[in-house]
Design a protein around this nucleic acid. Structure first.
Ligand SMILES: [Mn+2]
Ligand SMILES: [Mn+2]
Ligand SMILES: [Zn+2]
Ligand SMILES: [Zn+2]
Lengths: 143, 143
DNA sequence: GAATTAATGCAACCAAATTGCATCATGACT
DNA sequence: AGTCATGATGCAATTTGGTTGCATTAATTC
């Protein structure tokens, strides 16, 4: 993806164009899995931790990223490829956590099946599946 | 539930019978929803934070409680009513988080639907549904 | 009841995340 | 381009949630 495209992406989400934000965006677009804060910090160590935290917050607020909670307490962040805006996020895809490589993936092709809970009002559903991812499985079997 | 029953419960899970543990158990059995650490700390302020943390850990390890991750990063803890032991937990029920009262409930009557992910090896599934719980809905409509 | 072993409380510690504030950069408007 | 208002950044300080070490106390076993 080209620099100007990242710029447009930021502009479209009413975010000022800065070095840090471009780099964070780039990192997300060049990674197939979701990123934890630690991942980001390691990859972009020339920016202050605080700045990275604030970048994540603003991206989430503006609908560029979504937070993916994990059972171990450490959240990851994934790109919103859907129509998320400042108004709110609209995700219903499955998240997968690999117990081998530790990566968390968004699976936009798989939607969370709607459960009916009589008496309750259901607003959102969040499904995290864990196991072994495609890549780790391959390197385990065939090599 | 009677004191002697809590004692038996602890004994059956190879845990020493102590004041703190009885009180924690009692608290869980007298609450319909899951409890966060904060909840516990507030309810049982005469015990040290460290002791409460360790009580939770040992209860989880011995299959008395299970940890329920939440999207906000703060876990809750729910009673294991199933056959969980030191060997491991076996849960496949849905968890519900009410956005009004903030409570998290275990819904043992509702099982997490199995999703098929070709190429992946699925070990565990974790579904958190959020919305408005039965109680909050009632007090909103009827009241 | 004495010995053994585990649980508790307190203080110290630690990592993750947040806040305040001065400085610097961006974008809007001449 | 130059000015200005506003937002972003970096650093230090602080807060928060949780853990560790260790001496004391309590529960089990015999
Ligand atoms: Mn996702
Ligand atoms: Mn549960
Ligand atoms: Zn993997
Ligand atoms: Zn409620």
């Amino acid at each position: 993806m080209k620099y100007s495209e990242y710029k447009k992406l930021l502009k479209d989400h009413t975010l000022r164009i800065t070095d840090c934000r471009i780099n964070v965006l780039e990192k997300f677009y060049n990674t197939t899995h979701a990123l934890s804060f630690k991942n980001l910090e390691d990859a972009l160590s020339d920016y202050d931790r605080v700045t990275l935290y604030r970048t994540l917050s603003s991206f989430i607020e503006k609908g560029l990223l979504h937070r993916i909670p994990s059972d171990d307490g450490y959240a990851s962040y994934g790109l919103c490829r859907e129509d998320c805006t400042e108004g709110g996020h609209h995700h219903d895809h499955v998240h997968f956590k690999c117990n081998v490589c530790g990566h968390i993936e968004c699976l936009p092709a798989y939607h969370v099946p709607k459960v009916e809970l009589p008496g309750y009002e259901v607003n959102e559903q969040n499904l995290i599946v864990s196991g072994v991812c495609k890549i780790c499985r391959k390197s385990f079997n065939g090599e």
